[in-house]
Design a binder for these strands. Structure first.
Lengths: 241, 241
DNA sequence: ACCGCTCTCGCTATTTCTGGGGAGTTAAAA
DNA sequence: TTTTAACTCCCCAGAAATAGCGAGAGCGGT
């Protein structure tokens, strides 16, 4: 435990806003944990490609294990938050699968706590991160805690993500060369399941022309093939289906 | 001007949280405008497909003109916020193009005000919206206003978007037959741009087996082809890249 | 006036993917 | 225990995608 009294929230936020290095995020998150008097706080930038960044108060062993075992793929917190907009209590997630229950058990064994609350945050180009607070207590206390602090946590998540984005400009390698309208049309229809012939017919262009669009979109997105291009366009929010 | 005194912010937010109809968003946004004593407040859900939804205090004439002329395509507020994470003062955007200056002139003529501040908000599946406040005053006053109210505006934007997502019928929770781990692996690697041969090699299975996974995933997702299956898996949050 | 970009259309050849089949083993729920 | 589901492997013909090469019209910005 920290011997000093917890810092005031607005002071911590101010420090955070003025942060100029990644290490200050770690300091801030520890201060925030002490301020809210919870077991853990974590900021987790989620990137499925395997590279992830985060800071927080989980034990290094747990973090390493999480990465090693690729728990990203089965963690219900990730899966659940990815489809939600609002912050979510871990209890409301789907822990029914066997893999998820095993994961939960292991997490608790690593001292994560039986309660958790995660705030999804999204940035440009499909960037996605979580701000999570976890603790060991009973349901009533936790419900009161999350109800009281939801708004603060949303703001904190926002500020953390802002700083993380500021510090990691190279994480968005290609800052989204925008697609032309026709390219958007083409990729959208492909993502909707149309074959090339159907897309060409729908857009009233020849299939040859369509292929030019797909290729130029693929080039702009740095994609290896059509599937990749559609996936990137989707995850960067360039097309919506 | 409103004769009644402005409502307190937390009351307005509470009303907003309890809202059960879209029309209540309109009421809330008018209350918020009065509370902050600004000319306009607007929530604008931007969908790349062209269809938009919003509520706010802009004149109907301006809204109609905006839609008619497809100003979405040239509005620097949209373009700028789409690439940014943090809220932005309109002065910091790129108004250099001819079309943008013409648009700005017209907007001011419609009483939008010479100052503006927009908060980008993002939801699942590339959903994107803006919460905008605009006013007519000089730079110093506006700078002080935005500095003072930035945090509140971020929260308000968040709550508005939450409600808008709740009300959107499109957000129906798909039954979403879950994919098997191998199917998830296969679709994920495909979405990352791997060819079938590479995926099979990575997963240490034959390409024939891989095809079985892709097909069963396609069947579960109700997809017409591989591109469609990957797109659906992505937009349903079944795979993360 | 020119540059760059978008949009449209054309060709060939090679590689990859798809959509139908069927069949056996293992591991986990009912 | 039975049954269900996941996982693994195989064939083949035809459709789709990729990598190259072209061309010309139109539009907005420097």
């Amino acid at each position: 435990m920290n011997a000093a009294p917890p810092m005031r929230l607005d002071i911590i936020l101010e420090d955070l806003e003025g942060a100029s290095e990644l290490s200050e995020l770690q300091t801030a998150i520890e201060n925030l944990r002490d301020h809210f008097k919870v077991d853990h706080m974590v900021y987790h930038w989620v990137s499925g490609a395997g590279d992830q960044y985060g800071c927080g108060t989980y034990s290094p062993e747990w973090v390493q294990r999480y990465l090693e075992k690729e728990y990203l793929r089965i963690d219900p917190v990730i899966q659940g938050c990815y489809q939600r907009f609002h912050p979510v209590d871990w209890k409301r997630l789907d822990w029914s699968s066997k893999a998820a229950r095993g994961f939960q058990k292991e997490a608790i064994a690593h001292g994560i706590g039986n309660q958790g609350f995660s705030v999804p945050v999204r940035g440009p180009n499909g960037q996605f991160a979580l701000y999570t607070v976890s603790h060991n207590c009973d349901d009533d206390i936790w419900a009161a805690f999350t109800e009281t602090n939801r708004r603060d946590l949303i703001l904190i998540a926002h500020y953390f993500n802002q700083k993380a984005l500021d510090f990691e400009p190279d994480r968005k390698p290609e800052p989204a060369q925008p697609l032309s309208p026709r390219e958007v049309d083409a990729l959208t229809l492909l993502a909707m399941g149309y074959s090339r012939a159907q897309v060409a017919e729908t857009l009233n262009i020849s299939e040859h022309t369509l292929r030019v669009y797909i290729e130029s979109a693929r080039f702009k997105l740095g994609a290896m093939n059509t599937v990749h291009a559609v996936a990137r366009a989707l995850s960067r929010g360039l097309i919506v289906i």
